[in-house]
Amino acid sequence: MRAFNYCRPTSYGEAFHWLAGADQLVVPVAGATDLIPRIRDGLLRPDVVLDIKDLPDMRALTPTDGRLTSGEGVPPGLYVGAAVRMNELARSELVSSRWGVLAMAAASMGNEQVRNRATIGGNICTASPAADTAPALYVLEAAVCIKGPDGDRTVAIADFFAGPRKNALHRGELVVGLTIPQPPEGSIGHFEKLSRRKAGDLSIVSVAALAVRTDAGYRWRLALGAVGPTPLRSPESEAILSESLTDEAIDRAAASAYGCCCPISDIRSGLEYRQAMVINLTRHAIHAVMAQMPTP
């Protein structure tokens, strides 16, 4: 690998001092599962790699009863530090209790060794349209907590993904974590992905569905990965499913999901196959959620 320097700050002051260096390229690193292959391939030539894992609260995984959240009036939910690893999410009882769709997405990623290193902050910062935690975070309506030399800000997950490999961070900023609202009791989530192998590979298409429990029934949320420049929600499908769950409604919802995606052909799949699989996977995800609904 091409030579670079490595630093591991323990305070944000120190981290922002490094990141402000104008004469050199300073790149944050967490699990390095995306970064090292990119440096090896010559896609990135950092002068300094800045390890964020020892910064305060980067590894926190805790319910938010006010603590660790920046804004006022944050609903009770989950706070996930940026450096929390995939297997920590996949195996956490806390995460599975109410945010199961995120645990499922984390468990689907890469392989055991990669999941022991890859972090949620790294996954969203790659801003890959195929980032597997993204559809889950979209339906959970997570917010990304960002820290910079000039202060803190929060960005909705859907605004954080700006385009293929483009995120909403300004130069010198870091993602410190995510806040995820708690879906009401009785809500049901499901994540489904299709890849070239049954496991261990990036998604050709991924779908997250969340049926949010309401007094009257369920309000649906549906998000798709790897079929557009960013992950995306399908508002029309959501409206259809919230209205009715007949076979005909499910067909229309799947067709609407197909309508709102704009996939490309790449090494993992051709365009037409991706389009066809959007319909199939959306249907699977809807049925998987319905199978968990209590019978009236």
């Binding site: 490595y6 390095a32 090292i36 292959p37 790699v49 055991e112 290193r117």
Partner: peptide, 9 residues
């Protein structure tokens, strides 16, 4: 934990 040592700096 099992990890890929080729991806650890």
């Amino acid at each position: 934990l099992p990890v890929n040592s080729c991806l650890v700096l």
